[in-house]
Amino acid sequence: MRWLNLTLFVLYPVAWFAPLLRAGLLPLFGMKEISVISGLQSLWDTDIFLALIVTAFALFAPMLKTLGLALVQFHLLDRRALPALNLLGKFAMADVFLIAVYVTLSKGMGVGRVDTAWGLYLFTLCILASIVLGAVEARKR
Rank of each mutant, 00 (worst) to 15 (best):
V14D: 00
A15I: 12
A15H: 09
F17P: 03
L21Q: 08
A23Q: 12
P27H: 05
L28M: 10
L28P: 00
G30L: 07
G30I: 02
M31H: 06
M31T: 12
K32V: 12
K32D: 10
I34V: 15
V36K: 05
I37Q: 01
I37E: 01
S38P: 00
S42H: 09
D47Q: 10
F49N: 07
L50M: 15
T55P: 06
L59C: 06
F60M: 11
A61K: 04
P62F: 13
P62G: 08
L69I: 02
Q73I: 08
F74V: 15
F74Q: 14
L77W: 09
R79E: 13
P83M: 11
A84G: 14
L85K: 01
A92G: 05
D95W: 06
V96N: 05
V96G: 03
L98D: 00
I99L: 05
A100Y: 02
V101K: 03
Y102T: 01
L105D: 01
S106P: 01
M109K: 02
G110C: 03
V111H: 02
V111L: 10
V111D: 02
V111M: 04
G112I: 03
V114R: 02
D115Y: 03
T116D: 02
A117S: 12
W118L: 12
W118T: 07
G119K: 02
L122Q: 08
L122H: 06
F123S: 09
T124N: 09
C126F: 06
I127S: 08
V132T: 12
L133V: 08
A135M: 12
V136I: 14
A138E: 15
A138G: 10
A138K: 14
A138D: 13
R139M: 13
